[in-house]
């Protein structure tokens, strides 16, 4: 599969890049926990380094510096995620950025990619079912997201479905509660499903629609498992800066006094001349898993962390 992916992008003129796994700063993402380590520089001050949760920070800098369309297969790290059937703290990620394209073009490109990789699972070859988040929510829950734009309204909607919501919960947490409970578990397992137009309340570096409260972001599910995430990348420096400030503050507030690492951020990221582009990130272990019609990634990993932990006990 890795060879097929490389040929696919090489044929289309994408440059394969290799960026660092250790970074002195990360993009602030309150929902992702980081691994932290230290560079011991003899006779100098030690320097904190973080294992990347995605190569996004470096790849975007390359785009801004005029690299053109690029792709990368790299190992990424996410801490504090519980070891489940489709989670390992170290995992393989494919990221590709297409310069000049938007998220709709990325759907087409991703369809072609799925056709080009080896698969024993017929579902990967089938036409995608593309739906907006609002439509799939309406279908599965009868809730119109347009009408539950604040915390109070979405909480009422959740409670009408029998979901208990603790006090002062944020909009996106309540949204995710409903999404996981009533929508995600019921996503078609017969064809790849692309859910577009994510709520703007879920902060990320995707562009906003100007006429509706959603972002130009999609996620793809194969056999009901989330495998890909895509943005029409934000290029507005003010908005990138705003995201950095807001999300860093949120992360600091949530993590202060806990064991969770608060990774450094580099505000200079917001000053990059980000080009019009669309980026897709695919969890490769999960893609490989679905291509073999498996339901867990363990058999694909030579050394799953869960096994190494049991050996120690």
């Amino acid at each position: 599969m890795y060879r097929a992916i490389r040929s696919f992008f090489d044929e289309r003129g994408y440059l394969e890049v290799f960026t660092p796994t250790l970074s002195p700063s990360l993009i602030p993402e309150p929902t992702i926990k980081s691994f932290e380590t230290e560079f011991i520089n003899p006779f100098e001050e030690r320097m904190k380094l973080y294992m990347i949760p995605s190569p996004e920070i470096f790849m975007k800098e390359m785009i801004a510096n005029g690299s053109g369309s690029i792709y990368q297969i790299s190992n990424c790290f996410r801490n504090s995620e519980q070891l489940g059937d489709v989670h390992n703290p170290e995992f393989s990620m494919l990221e590709y950025y297409s310069v000049g394209m938007d998220e709709v073009d990325s759907i087409k490109l991703t369809k072609e990619l799925l056709n080009a990789i080896p698969s024993e699972n017929e579902n990967l070859r089938k036409p995608f079912l593309v739906t907006t988040m609002r439509d799939i929510f309406l279908e599965k829950t009868k809730i119109d997201l347009d009408e539950v734009q604040d915390e109070k309204e979405i909480r009422k909607a959740a409670e009408s479905l029998g979901i208990h919501v603790p006090g002062n919960e944020s909009w996106d947490d309540t949204f995710n509660r409903i999404f996981i409970n009533n929508v995600e578990c019921d996503i078609s397992k017969d064809v790849p499903v692309v859910i577009t137009d994510y709520p703007k309340q879920i902060e990320c570096l995707a562009k906003d629609y100007t006429d509706r409260p959603y972002k130009k972001r999609w996620e793809m599910y194969i056999d009901g498992v989330e495998v890909a995430n895509c943005y029409d990348e934000e290029t507005d420096k003010g908005k990138i800066k705003g995201y950095y400030v807001k999300e860093y503050e949120k992360m600091e507030k949530e993590r202060k006094g806990t064991d969770d690492v608060i990774p450094a951020v580099d505000m200079a990221f917001a000053d990059l001349e980000m080009k019009k582009s669309s980026g897709v990130a695919i969890g490769l272990d999960r893609l490989l898993m679905t291509s073999l019609s498996l339901t867990e990634i363990r058999p694909l990993l030579s050394f799953p962390l869960s096994d190494m932990l049991t050996q120690d006990n």
């Binding site: 929902t31 504090s80 519980q82 996106d172 995600e184 990320c204 989330e226």
Partner: peptide
């Protein structure tokens, strides 16, 4: 375990 993209665990 479910970790929705850009969401809590």
């Amino acid at each position: 375990f479910v970790n929705p993209g850009k969401g809590s665990a």
